[in-house]
């Protein structure tokens, strides 16, 4: 990963943030393309293991959003 190509793993709740991301998409809003979204059924499904796994596999930051 270089300075200008960062990877942020985003764990998005299906019902909240994933919907918001979808809405942002259909509204043609512009936002940085550094985020790699992973849809989870609920933020309660998230385990600390997921966050560590993401870091271990080399992402630059983790974002959890409900």
């Amino acid at each position: 990963m270089t300075e200008n190509n960062i990877k942020i793993v985003a764990f998005l709740c299906n019902w909240c943030s994933y919907g918001a991301a979808d809405l942002a998409g259909v509204s043609r809003m512009q936002y940085p393309a550094d985020v790699r979204a992973i849809r989870i059924p609920c933020t309660g499904r998230l385990s600390p293991k997921f966050i560590l796994s993401a870091l271990r596999e080399g992402c630059d930051a983790v974002w959890v959003s409900g």
């Binding site: 909240c16 943030s17 919907g19 918001a20 942002a24 930051a61 974002w63």
Partner: peptide, 14 residues
Amino acid sequence: IHFSWISSAEATKF
């Protein structure tokens, strides 16, 4: 490591 809380209607906040 970031945490946030965004409703499905808050595209701008997203």
